[in-house]
Design a binder for these strands. Structure first.
Ligand SMILES: [Mn+2]
Ligand SMILES: [Mn+2]
Ligand SMILES: [Zn+2]
Ligand SMILES: [Zn+2]
Lengths: 135, 135
DNA sequence: TTTCACTTTAGAATCATTATAAACTATTAC
DNA sequence: GTAATAGTTTATAATGATTCTAAAGTGAAA
């Protein structure tokens, strides 16, 4: 991902490209594969990868701005922490509770043959498939 | 549900049938349909339905005992509160984020035609389908 | 009726997250 | 440039859900 793309992500999230935000954005978006993380895990990885220190509030604020701009999505996982996902397309997940690891499943990999119709007056917004793993 | 069944649920959870526990168990299990709840919502409903007061710790402890015994399951819902479910069979959910309401979907109502195989060395424990609703 | 294990309870502690307000930094106005 | 201004980071406090703790309550068993 080019530097200009990082800046584009920041600008489109209403964020000016400060040192901290650029480092967070690079870390999140300059990669091949999907990245699933909690604010805590992101903080630890940032500490390792960079020389800077980040206030937790800065990470929370930046991540939320990206999420509100649609550059990050949220994944529901058992437990009390919030998981974020750099894959914002419609997709599904494997979840390995042993390692607390999420693995993406492309929407095309899951075909649903039958699904009930939505209750009175409601429509289906989207369908999420969550596959729990064991050893 | 008969009183003896309530007692059976309590005993099989390692709980002696005290006044509070019996009231919680009756409220949870003596009903036709599935009940989805948070500890907070359960507490409010118990206050309305009964004359007793319940310490939050008592509700937390009792609910967790039921969950550990397999009489309650946990449902992942966006947000910070933990949702419990009196339906412990394999099933799916509609979720209406407007009203924070969960609606059960029987496992038979969903047929999945294609699913990816589990990653190296892992097996599929179960598949959960979550259908988000909109108006 | 005394003992003793188990319960309930109020309140404290914890943990993730959010809010606050002061110190910093960059941008704009003169 | 310097001053004013707007936006940012940060440490720390506040919050809210959940868990822990320790004291008081309850009831079965000796
Ligand atoms: Mn969760
Ligand atoms: Mn949740
Ligand atoms: Zn994902
Ligand atoms: Zn359910």
């Amino acid at each position: 991902m080019k530097k200009t793309d990082i800046f584009k992500k920041l600008r489109s999230s209403g964020l000016r490209p400060t040192k901290q935000r650029v480092e967070i954005a690079k870390f999140l978006f300059d990669r091949e594969k999907t990245f699933h993380f909690t604010v805590e895990s992101l903080n630890k990885l940032l500490e390792k990868k960079t020389t800077s220190k980040f206030a937790l509030a800065t990470i929370y604020n930046t991540v939320h701005s990206f999420k509100n701009a649609g550059h990050l999505s949220e994944v529901e996982v058992k437990g009390n922490k919030t998981y974020f996902d750099t894959n914002v397309s419609n997709h599904h997940h494997f979840y390995d509770s042993e390692t607390s690891q999420l693995i993406d499943i492309d929407a095309k990999e899951v075909v649903i043959q039958k699904i009930p119709k939505a209750p009175n007056g409601k429509k289906i917004k989207n369908v999420e498939v969550f596959i729990n793993l064991k050893n």
